[in-house]
């Protein structure tokens, strides 16, 4: 695997305006994503995990230029092509749209009930003008449908005839048809049953390897991330709190929040009590974040400095970063 970043963000922030409370003075806003710097390597399956309200979806959309960016920089570099995504010309934007695609969470909401499966998959080709004739379009649709294990006879049917897993395969085919380089999969298996989920995950993984794609895989489910991604970033209240190669993160989590997330996953063994690190309270509202470390209101190891000073991401190993004032003290000596 080449160690080159396909997409990197530097100090990326996304703000959403709040209704003004005063006529004059600064306009209030919610900071959904605050100062995120991440490199997504070419050909990687990058996992982004966090609870609701952590900003993981917003970050994914920012990389697709689907939300306004308040500050920071995103660069896209693929071979000879490279852009600054924060200042794209109209031409570059059109080109970038072909290169980056999104797979949605809910396959019941993402497909138009009035279009046939063939039309749904062909739409990006037609909109982007990628094919010259109807025959060419059909050929491309059939090729990608076969890759996504969609029965070719089903192309003439409408989405209502399909189950959740089949629909998700259709939306994957639609995302892949324009031959993109970068895919954001936002909770793409969360709405599926367990027996179907494994099938879709395996499909995504094999397509990624076949086509040499780069994935940003957003999920709230750490065990799904553990099985699919090679690199993980954990988000909390708009910040990255820890990022590491998957195996390292699961073997040696350093941030108290990552540890708590891992121990909160119910084990399949009824007698497993686990090292209980249950968190008190809930994620604070992003419109009124606490000062200092954003996690200090729920952290079991909080000290004075956490309440006033926000920790920066610091390197603790090759590609392993953590944002915590006390991570060194908290390393279990038995490890």
């Amino acid at each position: 695997m080449t160690k080159k970043a396909l997409i990197s963000s530097r100090d990326l922030s996304v703000h959403f305006p709040l209704p003004a409370t005063r006529l004059f003075g600064p306009k209030p806003f919610v900071s959904a994503v605050e100062g995120i710097s991440l490199d997504i390597q070419q050909g990687s399956f990058f996992g982004l995990v966090g609870e609701s309200g952590s900003g993981k979806t917003t970050y994914g959309r920012a990389l697709l230029r689907a939300v306004p960016i308040a500050q920071g920089k995103i660069t896209y570099a693929d071979g000879d092509v490279s852009y600054d995504l924060t200042s794209l010309s109209a031409e570059e934007m059109t080109d970038y749209r072909k290169r980056a695609q999104l797979i949605f969470q809910d396959p019941y909401a993402a497909l138009s009930p009035r279009m046939t499966v063939r039309d749904i998959i062909a739409e990006p080709l037609e909109v982007m003008g990628l094919t010259k004739s109807r025959e060419e379009t059909d050929e491309r649709v059939r090729e990608i449908a076969a890759k996504c294990r969609i029965n070719l006879e089903h192309l003439r049917r409408f989405p209502h005839a399909f189950s959740g897993g089949q629909r998700q395969r259709i939306s994957i085919a639609r995302a892949l048809v324009s031959n993109p380089r970068f895919i954001v999969a936002d909770e793409s298996v969360a709405a599926l049953d367990v027996s179907i989920q494994a099938d879709v995950l395996n499909l995504l993984k094999s397509i990624q390897q076949d086509m040499g794609l780069t994935f940003l895989f957003i999920s709230h489910d750490l065990s799904v991330i553990a099985h699919t991604c090679d690199h993980v970033a954990v988000m909390y209240l708009g910040r990255i709190v820890e990022t590491a190669p998957t195996r390292e993160l699961f073997a040696e989590p350093r941030h108290p929040y990552t540890k708590a997330l891992l121990s909160a996953i119910p084990s399949l063994d009824p007698d497993y009590a686990g090292d209980v690190q249950k968190l008190e309270g809930e994620i604070p509202s992003p419109s009124n974040p606490p000062p200092g470390c954003k996690f200090h209101t729920r952290c079991p190891h909080v000290i004075d400095i956490c309440r006033t000073e926000e920790p920066r991401l610091s390197k603790l190993g090759f590609e392993h970063d953590v944002a915590c004032h006390r991570w060194e003290e908290l390393v279990d000596p038995s490890e």
């Binding site: 367990v194 989920q197 494994a198 995950l201 065990s223 799904v224 553990a226 699961f250 891992l262």
Partner: peptide, 12 residues
């Protein structure tokens, strides 16, 4: 089958 389809943290 359900148990095999479930991603488990103790076995990656």
């Amino acid at each position: 089958g359900l148990m095999d389809a479930l991603p488990r943290l103790d076995d990656l």
